[in-house]
Write a protein that binds this DNA or RNA. Sequence first.
DNA 1: GGATGGGTCAATGTATACAAGAAGGTTGAC
DNA 2: GTCAACCTTCTTGTATACATTGACCCATCC
Lengths: 218, 218
Amino acid sequence: MEKRRADIIADALEERIFNGTYADGDRLDEVRLSEHFGVSRTPLREALQRLARSQLVELVPRRGAFVRQPGPVELMEMFEVMAEVEAVCGRLAAKRISDTALADLHDANHKCQIAVDAQEPDLYYAENERFHKIIYREAGNGFLETETCNLHRRLQPYRRQQLRLRGRMAQSLAEHKAILTALEQGDSEAAANALRGHVAIQGEKFHSLMATLKNAAE
Amino acid sequence: MEKRRADIIADALEERIFNGTYADGDRLDEVRLSEHFGVSRTPLREALQRLARSQLVELVPRRGAFVRQPGPVELMEMFEVMAEVEAVCGRLAAKRISDTALADLHDANHKCQIAVDAQEPDLYYAENERFHKIIYREAGNGFLETETCNLHRRLQPYRRQQLRLRGRMAQSLAEHKAILTALEQGDSEAAANALRGHVAIQGEKFHSLMATLKNAAE
DNA sequence: GGATGGGTCAATGTATACAAGAAGGTTGAC
DNA sequence: GTCAACCTTCTTGTATACATTGACCCATCC
């Protein structure tokens, strides 16, 4: 089945917003973009609405579409929510996780270890993602899984950056192991706390990263 | 500022879906609806996309828009998530809530007590909503507040039904008081647990209500 | 008689044309 | 000289026309 052009365009624009090609507040001109993509304004407008749905652009009536990059405050808020949501996933997963899923988590952690040893952030990131996705799924709540994945996706570019910090990969892996232990023991509270801390640290690391970048710019 | 027609139509359709005018699986014919609302297909399609964003309709490419009422399983999942999300709000609010907000909560509970005494579910519902909304806000996380309100809104019609069950209003108020006590004491865990239980019970009540209706229909 | 293939039809996806509103510039008056 | 109002222009919102595709039905072949 061929995808609709609106979806293709929305994906392309989303990529550009994440990439930083478009800065916060930039206006997305409908005619310019439609010419660029070689389509009419109709599918492009649909794409913009899809982006507005994800809060990536703001649609001001009669004014146009404006890129809306989350500011530092909103990002911290999102990280806090992500930490709490992951804690919820952990709480539920501790009671519901299957043995095969536990084996998968062990496997993901093993590959993460390899990534740490080889100092390969990209590999670590991929297996880290798998680790978390497994927990989302094993929470046994499809609605929760979908919403969590959506938020995870929105924070993805920021989550990725902080892996470059020295020693963060090894620390992250240690946290993964604690999470896995709690899940294996079926300890809901421990799993929730471990996951909350794991993600909250990411937010803090990101915050310090932001501060560093800001200071460097001044 | 005049609202865009797409928004007006989206609201109208949303209302109909909630009202049960449209059943699950109903196809929303673009031309028929556009004639009904006296607009062209363009704003109507935008309205459908806005509904698809809220998961109220499913947009199948080349097939059309179909009403997508959540089934019993998905509803239970949503109630479970609502319970956990409210618990998160309670956890954060316990540390951050202001004195004026605590006073507002007392006031809301007082009005709820009046509603219980007078056996007025509508009044109770209004003050109950205020009670919960205050907690969402006092969690001190704008992103969390927005997302929580969205989910709250989606569950609103189902939440409302179960207030009709005998004795539920009084029980609900007792739970409110426990929540308020935990918040006043700044006890995060107690607040989280109280709120989780409070909402989870709503899900269970709703479940039994569903079962009753289903049995009555057979 | 059943199944498969082609054709027709209807509905969605896309393009374009038109209307309405907002922003900015220019001109006139005080 | 400055402020305000009007006009122009550009952009968004809406309507309509066209294209494309999926579904259904009938006919023909096995």
